[in-house]
Design a protein around this nucleic acid. Sequence first.
RNA 1: GUGGAUGUAGCUCAAUCGGCAGAGCACCGGACUGUGGCUCCGGUGGUUGUGGGUUCAAGUCCCAUCAUCCACCCCA
Length: 428
Amino acid sequence: MRYRRPRGVNDITPAEVGRWQRAEEAYRSLCRAYRYEEIRTPSFEQTELFIRAVGEETDIVSKEMYTFEDRGGRSLTLRPEGTAPVVRAFLEDKLQGQDRERLVKLFYIAPIFRYDRPQAGRYRQHHQCGAEALGSSNPAVDAEIVSLAMSFYRTLGITQVTLLLNSVGCPVCRPQHLARLKAQVAERLGEMCEDCRRRYADNPLRLLDCKSPVCREITAGAPSAVEMLCEECGEHFTGVQAALQALEIPYTLEPRIVRGLDYYTKTAFEFVAPGLGAQDSIGGGGRYDGLVEQCGGPPTPAVGIGIGLERVLIAQEAAQKATGLEACATQRQGVLVVALGEEAWRPVLGLCQALRQAGHPAEVDYRRRSLRAQLSFADKERFRWAVIIGEEEAAADTVTLRDMASGEQETLPRGGLVSRLKRENEPC
RNA sequence: GUGGAUGUAGCUCAAUCGGCAGAGCACCGGACUGUGGCUCCGGUGGUUGUGGGUUCAAGUCCCAUCAUCCACCCCA
């Protein structure tokens, strides 16, 4: 009997893990530059947190959560999104301190769990690089978050990124907008497609996004969310655009951008990139001015983003293919200690240990193969050095050091190897 | 959740009408006894996703199931 991984989840194999680490490190160092601090929250929370924060009627809560009861009868849920846990920690760990006006800037890299139907770029466990800025209503903070994401994409070589921007209003103007939209459509609802009749009840903003000609005709002329914004939201939206222009970040106004989580207010944005098929969104976020208060804290305006790492890596690969840039050959590194015969084998383990303690990745071929085979192995595995110990070297307490790139060799006392390599520690 | 396509060696893929499961790459070895990359020669490697069914005979046909992919939906 063989086990297989559950549907929709992935192993990150040794062959891939380098790309993951490079992307994660790029994100961490960018966040440092933008002065965001890392926070790590648990993989699961009280179910109630997500229901309250994300919204009972959302797809995420109503059909995508991994919810279970622990042995104590508590209902827990695997993190289906990154913001709610951060807000919870912000309040519970009192991260704002005594300064009520303080801007708290946090980032995370964390697995996210959703019971979706898997397809390329959509998984039941994926990873998000997120950032949240809590405590400011300044539209420049929205732009800062956008700028952080843009820099991240650029660092990874993903250049064909489009920023889609919208404003979904606030508790004052959004209901008015929805009411007006539904009113316009109501009379002819019967003529609309099945999907749109469902949207009318579940997600009216999506009515504007239908491909059916009839539905298009019915919704034609309906006001977009932006046109219905109240004064405060309108001003904020103008401010965000001004800040983006100041940062020279191009964007496309896109009224269809609707975040699938109820807590969003005002700014909503999404980044799309080529090479991903239908799942082309490589990041999304927006403002959530009401969430902290809704979670039991003081009124605290906030804005955040989530970036899907799996999709970012797919987009990166597509971008590299498009530009004909092959991943550069991994550089030679480390030492293969080659032992030939019984006498030679004796000093090998100690030599290996000494090399490792001096910081050189060092390995022995435990298969005890021929010199030819071992050198071939050293080449394939991209070792920088081979240290050969045969009968001669064993008898004289020396080693032969071979540079695998040039083929040059020298013989030196066994005890002098570590200090000899110390001089050569720079990459070739 | 809805509709569709595809599952054969580590990888990429063949296999006519239902008739001996194959190639290239990779891997191991040799040519070259202690010197890698090139070349040539040889070799290892398979529960044809899984479970049933039809048949003298199933990779091939039928049913179920699992997985992946595509579109919808949704989202990162």
